[in-house]
Design a protein around this nucleic acid. Sequence first.
DNA 1: GCAGTAGCCTACTACGAGTAAGTTACCTGC
DNA 2: GCAGGTAACTTACTCGTAGTAGGCTACTGC
Lengths: 204, 204
Amino acid sequence: MTARPAPTAPPRKRRSRAERERQILAVAEQVFADEGYQAASMDDIAHRVGLSKPMLYEYFGSKDGLLMACLHRAKQELFDTTTTAAAGANGPEGLLHDCLLAFFRFSDDHAQAWALLRNEAAVPVSSVSSELESIRLQQIGFTAELLRGARPDLDEVRLEAYAESIIGACERLALWRERRPEVTARQATEHLMSLLLPSLGTGA
Amino acid sequence: MTARPAPTAPPRKRRSRAERERQILAVAEQVFADEGYQAASMDDIAHRVGLSKPMLYEYFGSKDGLLMACLHRAKQELFDTTTTAAAGANGPEGLLHDCLLAFFRFSDDHAQAWALLRNEAAVPVSSVSSELESIRLQQIGFTAELLRGARPDLDEVRLEAYAESIIGACERLALWRERRPEVTARQATEHLMSLLLPSLGTGA
DNA sequence: GCAGTAGCCTACTACGAGTAAGTTACCTGC
DNA sequence: GCAGGTAACTTACTCGTAGTAGGCTACTGC
């Protein structure tokens, strides 16, 4: 019994590490998003890539490590989406509006990445939940900054509370839209703006 | 090797099913809350109760079943807390205020139940996540009802969007308070009220 | 041609969910 | 007091999956 595959299956082509990492990430993101973290098996992912399990461990260390790598990518995408939206807006209200819209569109357009962020909130490993939390903190810091522009009269703690509330509302609304597919990203933005604007209209 | 315990350990006392179920639930709620669903092991829970694993399966069917039973209890507690608060309030604004306060106090006083609800959002089993979702729907329906009183001019979809937003904001704020323990339940309520009131003050 | 190494594999161990099958304490009717 | 029925309880498994040990092999540079 050598390590050589059965004669009917020719030995697999070798690829560079970078290329394999990209392949693995693509497959893993899909599997994690489709089946959830627990149900996904490393053997299955390896098989779909066309590799054996130890390679996954060689490149990503653990199942958590692999998930973390996927989350990292999703985080980057979300960050890029919102910062791009922020760059093109004018005025505090327009800014908020455009960022909300960008967020809802992100959950439409990057369904896979969004499913990842949405589903894996309670993965047992602390490194994972802290990565998740760091994604939120990024969004929250961003939002707080944005609020500061609209309401410079508010103190830090209150800004933070508002930012947290808004992020929480966004997440819930994005989930709500899965139950109500007829609600467009634009409409969701509109609902949330109408709830927030009266409190954020240039203050005092 | 019979099934009798070693002579140093006398055979365990037998208890009625109902009593055992209560014991198991108490231990399981604590373990799930402390360690999270995945990290908790059935053997460990059984051991802490002073039983062997098959009894847990006899009574709760599966690990998910056990978690579900815990969640069910937490759900009931949350529901009771908020409905009680709602009963004692007067006027739409007071109603919202009292319910928010009751929620934040719930997350203080029933820390264990809250940790359960907060952490297990993404347990892979669909029955579990749907139980979680049903808890939210209960809260959301409740909130929507409450909003209808304040803003009868709004249409159904918008009421639902507002309710979802508010629940999302509540959940995020409760989590935020874990990072900022100096913020009291009353202050959190105050922050959220100040964000919401301008939009919910008796409309149009 | 011939190292050296990066990429790859088979074949394990460890551990936890869930199960089969048997044992025993308690209760009930005589 | 005692047969015997049943509910409570146990040990000792199977099975699936995360993670690992250790070795083989195809490409690279000389």
